[in-house]
């Protein structure tokens, strides 16, 4: 049976789409057939992160309007043939599609793909409701910031109310040095507050911006960056493997620790 997972966060700008792109690509790399759906009608971005923006001929709206077949709208990724993108229309509003239509699209995709990732728009309005309608699982993406965690909590509540029980957490943009210095919530803090199972932690990494610029998900790098490795681990855990959390605590303020060790053996 296909796994239908919605990627959501409540707050915008926490890295939902980046996570979707990397997870989709990583799952495809591991041999799964993956369809990623951009549910952000009117403000689509997933195509950019995957570097597929100039290959879009048809969108989900065209499929629903009967202007083309579903397979025509699916954009295959040449780098990774197991991955297909179902793009959102850029010229429509989120109200132009209904939850039932989303369910119909996803149901059709489940016949061919065994992972379907739905990239939800920010917010909890129509676009969000469309995105979660077909989902059986959810991945909450949050950053260790008060506003993101609060919104994530609200979304978890809404998902539970919509009968999506398997809800897991990705903590994005963690800065271990700041946690160490007591200026950022730790993984444990965030997880303790949200109390849902943790799928992984992605460290803040400049490479994320570089990969976005190029339209190549981090996971495609030959030598994986720290964030890239974190995404690879998340992908393994998503498929049921037990992978310990990476040790992100980079050697912090080396001088001070060394100084302390000197005095306090």
């Amino acid at each position: 049976m296909s796994r239908i997972i919605v990627m959501t966060s409540g707050k915008g700008g926490v890295g939902k789409t980046t996570c979707t792109a990397n997870l989709g690509m990583a799952l495809a790399k591991s041999g799964q057939r993956v369809a990623v759906i951009d549910a952000d009608f009117g403000l689509r971005n997933l195509d950019l992160l995957l570097g597929l923006e100039n290959r879009i001929v048809y969108t989900a709206i065209d499929v629903l309007a009967g202007e083309c077949r579903l397979d025509q709208a699916l954009v295959k990724d040449k780098r990774q043939p197991n991955l297909a993108l179902l793009p959102a229309a850029q010229n429509r509003s989120k109200e132009s599609i209904k939850p039932e239509q989303m369910q119909r699209l996803v149901k059709a995709l489940t016949k061919v793909y065994n992972f379907i990732l739905i990239d939800s728009p920010a917010g909890i309005e129509m676009g969000f409701r469309n995105a979660i309608a077909p989902a059986r699982e959810a991945i909450i993406v949050t950053t260790p910031e008060i506003s993101a965690v609060r919104d994530a909590d609200r979304v978890i509540g809404l998902l539970e109310a919509n009968d999506i029980k398997a809800v897991r957490l990705i903590i994005n943009r963690l800065r271990p040095a700041m946690v160490e210095a007591g200026q950022m919530m730790s993984v444990k803090d965030v997880q303790g507050i949200l109390s849902i199972p943790l799928l992984g932690v992605i460290p803040d990494d400049e490479q994320v911006i570089v990969s976005t610029n190029k339209g190549e998900p981090l996971i495609l790098e030959e030598k994986l960056s720290l964030a890239g490795m974190a995404f690879a681990n998340v992908t393994l855990r998503l498929q049921g493997e037990k992978v310990p959390l990476m040790d992100l605590s980079a050697p912090p303020e080396g001088f001070l620790t060394r100084l302390k060790r000197l005095f306090d053996p």
Binding site: E145, I146, V149, R150, V179, G182, Q183, M184, M185, S186, D189, I193
Partner: peptide
């Protein structure tokens, strides 16, 4: 600030 934010949250 880490303690502050936890308490506020």
């Amino acid at each position: 600030s880490r303690d502050d934010v936890k308490r506020r949250l």
